[in-house]
Design a protein around this nucleic acid. Structure first.
Lengths: 234, 234
DNA sequence: CCACCTCATAGATACGACGTATTCAAGAGG
DNA sequence: CCTCTTGAATACGTCGTATCTATGAGGTGG
């Protein structure tokens, strides 16, 4: 076992096998045998079996008697599993994953903003305007890290305020998309002023309970995000 | 072990513990001990541990030394895991889950339809019109089961034709929503004629490559679905 | 050529042992 | 009386081995 992120053999092996599969190093159809994994990673049967069970629950692999552990075709993977998403974002088909997520965002966030306009609590409205203003004040002069913090927080609040648990869960994923985008940015360019303005206006619309406007403005933001992706990604 | 769905002790125990947690029988904060589960379900330590590991990967529970296996708060669950969705749909907060999913549909499907209008293959267009016509021909005279088959297939094709792997993955979930809706329907009423017409028109729009129209019409369908939910659910 | 049977294989399950982190509480010191 | 340290109990983590069982392959006989 060369490395690993979480403590414990289980987490370590999972952090090795998961990415190996999602990155395509073990393409669909590949057969892994339990005892081979045992010796390759120098862990006990117990650890291997538990990891395989987890990978099986993510539908990345299928374990069959007399055959071994087979990697399933990509289209059967649980692509909504945050763990799988993280592995894919860190691996080879990061562009593809980024595109999928951005399209998902473009579908979900406008609706979420509309719902937020109806349901957001006063505290959430306050948070929203605070982060929007934070984005304004950090939008100039190479402060992209601080800007990103506000940007992520802004979208997190919107998704939580929508009152939909599934939307809320997408907050973490969106955070990774935004973070990844900034990491790939040339760090010398400031964020698009138009986008900053849009965020402020969305905060206003939500605060004012204007569903239709919140939705429309957020849709403009996501359209911008997709356009940006077309420029940056292959 | 009273019952179970899949063959094998692992699947059986998972099918007992999962629903027990998602239904609220074991509310967040509940602590389960490994050996207690062993004797309660009459399985070995191995099986319990592997099941706990899977539940942990779904973020339903957290296993800590000297403490036991604690049920995590609801907002930390992997609510996009199809298995979790199925358990919740079968359990107590089915209405809440159904509402979340319907809102998600209303966000995703219109965008998916728009993309499908641009990307659908001739075969997919053919499938689409076939199922739309199938819906028409089964929309009268207590043929809800046949109607449902076409309805599910229709939305499946739309989501797949969008070219987005994440959208495509939602097809199975949407199928369960539609199925569940029909199961709760009074079986004597035929489907809404307006909805049937909309499906036919969506198929036309996709076939004709009219993105804007496909999106708008699909949005009308999902609006109808939400309205229907308001009538049926608490 | 096909249907059926046998056997080897590799995962599925079980059990017992030891390691280790974590918590809680008792006791020493201030 | 309060705080900090230290120790022991505890429940999960890891390991090795043994047995069971499903299943795919290959042989056998009709």
């Amino acid at each position: 076992m060369t490395s690993g992120e979480g403590r414990g053999l289980h987490a370590t092996l999972l952090a090795s096998l998961g990415p190996a599969i999602t990155s395509g190093d073990c393409p669909p159809g590949t057969v892994l045998r339990t005892d081979e994994l045992e010796e390759r990673f120098e862990v006990s049967r117990t650890v291997v079996r538990e990891v395989v069970r987890v990978l099986e629950s993510m539908r990345l692999v299928e374990s069959r008697r007399r055959v071994g552990v087979t990697v399933r075709p990509t289209e059967e993977w649980n692509v909504f599993d945050p763990q799988v998403i993280r592995w894919r974002l860190a691996g080879r088909d990061r562009p593809r994953q980024l595109r999928s997520l951005t399209v998902l965002r473009s579908a979900v966030e406008p609706i979420a903003a509309g719902l937020a306009a109806r349901l957001a609590s006063p505290e959430q409205c306050e948070e929203l305007t605070r982060h929007a203003l934070g984005m304004v004040s950090t939008s100039r002069g190479q402060q992209l890290e601080s800007y990103l913090v506000h940007d992520v927080a802004f979208h997190h609040v919107i998704l939580r305020a929508s009152g939909n648990e599934m939307f809320a869960k997408l907050g973490d994923v969106v955070a990774e998309v935004l973070t990844g985008r900034t990491q790939h940015h040339v760090m010398f360019t400031d964020p698009d002023p138009a986008a900053v303005t849009l965020h402020v206006q969305v905060a206003e619309a939500v605060r004012g309970g204007d569903e239709e406007r919140a939705e429309r403005l957020t849709r403009e933001i996501t359209i911008g995000a997709m356009a940006e992706l077309d420029v940056l990604a292959p």
